[in-house]
Design a protein around this nucleic acid. Sequence first.
DNA 1: TATACTTAGTGTGCAAATAACACTAAACAC
DNA 2: GTGTTTAGTGTTATTTGCACACTAAGTATA
Lengths: 241, 241
Amino acid sequence: MEETAETYDASRYERPSVTVDVVIFTVINGELHVLMVLRRRWPYEGYWAVPGGFINMDESLEQAARRELEEETGVRNIYLEQLYTFGSPQRDPRTRVISVAYIAIVRADVQELHVSDESSDVRWFPVRALPEKLAFDHEDIVSYALSRLRSKLEYTTLAFQLLPEVFSILELKHIYEQILGESLDKGNFYRKIKEAGILEETSMVREGRGRPTRLWRFKRDRGDKQFVFRWREDRLDDENG
Amino acid sequence: MEETAETYDASRYERPSVTVDVVIFTVINGELHVLMVLRRRWPYEGYWAVPGGFINMDESLEQAARRELEEETGVRNIYLEQLYTFGSPQRDPRTRVISVAYIAIVRADVQELHVSDESSDVRWFPVRALPEKLAFDHEDIVSYALSRLRSKLEYTTLAFQLLPEVFSILELKHIYEQILGESLDKGNFYRKIKEAGILEETSMVREGRGRPTRLWRFKRDRGDKQFVFRWREDRLDDENG
DNA sequence: TATACTTAGTGTGCAAATAACACTAAACAC
DNA sequence: GTGTTTAGTGTTATTTGCACACTAAGTATA
């Protein structure tokens, strides 16, 4: 019994729901934060959750993630990366729900948040002080996102997503320290970043107490090609396909 | 209008199908191979594809992957890792299908293959000589799997999954060379692997032409704790959650 | 106007890791 | 024996990582 486009019955299999959840990071006042929404409906009503929602049938997973991101923060064209797909059968009491999780990084200066109709509040939480209990398995999702963020940091230019157009080298170092959760040697950081040749000197300086600091910008190779700067001299890849 | 378990309508959203595809690697005669099945039905009838299938509603993604793996190779309890989720809307002509891809590694000595009813042939292909055109986006899936395999190799003990219980150090080196696609220095490899302290000497040797070789086994810390041996002294993590 | 203080940025040296390659070891064939 | 083959060890130059001491350039204040 051969199957063809004509005989194929699309409803033959029972289907799970698929959601996209986006763990959105930013740095506020030098501290790493995650965006959470307060759920307004059953299930997990009154619990904080990572923003997300069901995918539309005609959009790709990444498009769905960008849509969610934009709905909550109004941000477009931002760093976005698939994290992991969570699919244990009991993770959602409504029905079988499979969640494709993404990581996004937004600039500290973009912070107008929009409460969608699914939620009653939206808020940035410092990663060191997340709400007690999160909805679904979102605690797993956030903690995995954090560990991925840390390891990615070591071999991509991801940190630059968190900085304004121009910045000082010590500000960059501070971002690294925030995400890695450890302090780095000033001298070694200077040398490393200079040798990588990914920064472009500007004529600007910023005054404050003490010696004024030179400002730099991230050197974008003409086009959009992403640089690979590796913090600890490492390996490449692990990208998507 | 509050929603509760009683008022929730599970059929409200249109749902995609979800499949699990497993890229299964092995080494045969010192060469890295991937398992492919020949499709018997529309769509892509007569094309080679990575083994996979629809998930059941009551099994986790990993369980589904293990089920597929066992159906094709009869192997259980093997190294398995989630790779990436592929979800562009047009990747399957039947309907919207989202594929969660996994990587599996099986021993060279396990090689009884089972043709399932979905396929008319199952076969190992050397990664250097895959079939011309693969079904769906499976070419992307395989090539991404390969790049992940290479980068994982450098900081896990994954290579040991490809070897029998006892093996010589040069055999291990050969596996590394196969996967990395480059040749390594004998002396440096010996030193590195010895210093890592992850091998246990056996009293066995194997004779052949030339000097007989000592055989070793992978030292499993009591329990199941996975060692982390890093080939190029690197970073950790990127694990799942 | 000197000197203390603060933040920015550079230099130096040791220890560890990498990489290249020359060497010794133990078997067999003749 | 001597040559050949595969296994395994040693030696050394070079590069990288890392800790820490130093110099630079401004502001505050006595």
